[in-house]
Design a protein around this nucleic acid. Structure first.
Lengths: 213, 213
DNA sequence: TAGATTGTTAATCGATTAACAATC
DNA sequence: TAGATTGTTAATCGATTAACAATC
């Protein structure tokens, strides 16, 4: 399997996956790149190019088999494996993530939340306990945790990232508005809500409507 | 002011704005494109190109005045105006957004949350009341609300978007994993957590580390 | 004035679209 | 077989980088 697929291609894959899942639920068996284009807004040509980075999943004269393509994309996206995760920062956002159902669907399991506020340590979100953040490093090492989520204020984000790095985590999902410095072998994916909000604001000011900027 | 600045440029502006804010807090008065490059990871050349889409904010031999550039970018991003907002969906995520401090910093004011669950209608998040979603349309019309946030399950997202459109809102900040259909004059900015998570998963599977994919 | 750094044009690189032969 | 639609190459378009004259 070739390795150097561009990030712009990869960022489109989840959207394909989402629509294929919807088609699957509707019981639709096949789909052409043209029909996928109508759904996703990407051109048919681009869709074919994108998919062919990973293999020839289609069939001339027929199109793509929905359930096969869905399964293949799931594999490509790594959704066929379960990862253990922890959440640092058990405020509203941390609790929202802990409760987020899409999280389990993607094969992630939250084993614990961590916080430094003694008032909430010991509480449970669903059945997930909030523990003292001082226990986090050992917990990660002892429970085969591979993903660390950061939902703390930005002031603490780099400290948490450092602890994560020491603990041997492999990936960080960062919600703090900060660019984390981590060792080369750790993957960081950012959700920068403030940036998203600023972009909304930009287009509002200019009164430029239309979906999906 | 020219109008057609590409979306790829616009998506970099919030990062410039964030770092300039940090420099301002540190009391740093000037910065070169080269120094900004070190901070942001974009090339100096690209930074100069980006900024020159909006005007010549720099000075040869000197660089950029931090507070001036910060202020100018704030204007470009529309952060110099206050918008009223409401939130549909008062679960964890909706409450997290209501409590999110970056929200006020960007000039957005949440006037009310709305939900259909009678158990939480009437409660307050900080001092923001949760109201019955049936009252939402009138509330928006009567309170000069311009932004609608969607933190409901995806099943309800399009209905909420329709109500927003009827209410005369101008912008939607959508957290549901769905592509909303809205009239041309309404701006939609999406925060697709599931897509972000899938991308983290993709890079984890491939064991490709490094920041900022 | 000399040094620094922008603003801007030109060159390169990469991504998207178009086109069509291959083939189901 | 005829029609449909992919996989893939070539053409186009847009974004990034390099280079340097302008100028503070």
């Amino acid at each position: 399997m070739g390795n150097k697929v561009s990030i712009t291609v990869i960022r489109r894959l989840p959207k394909y996956y989402r629509y294929l899942g919807e088609l699957l639920n509707k019981g639709i068996a096949r789909i052409s790149s043209q029909e996928l284009s109508t759904l996703t807004g990407f051109t048919a040509s681009q869709i074919r190019q994108d998919l062919n980075n990973f293999g020839g999943f289609g069939q001339q004269g027929y199109g793509y088999n929905v359930s096969e393509l869905y399964r293949e994309l799931g594999k490509i996206l790594g959704l066929d494996k379960v990862y253990n995760a922890v959440i640092a920062g058990a405020g509203n956002l941390g609790q929202a993530v802990a409760n987020y159902r899409g999280f389990e669907d993607a094969g992630f399991k939250v084993l614990s939340l961590f916080d430094k506020n003694p008032k909430i340590i010991g509480l449970k979100i669903r059945d997930i306990e909030i523990r003292d953040v001082d226990l986090m490093e050992n917990f990660i090492k002892e429970n085969n945790v591979e993903i660390g989520i950061i939902t703390t204020p930005k002031e603490n984000a780099q400290d948490i990232a450092n602890t994560y790095a020491k603990s041997g985590l492999r990936g960080i999902w960062n919600f703090a508005p900060a660019d984390l410095k981590v060792p080369e072998n750790i993957v960081v994916e950012n959700v920068h809500l403030n940036e998203s909000l600023f972009i909304l604001s930009y287009f509002l000011k200019r009164n430029l409507g239309g979906n999906s900027h």
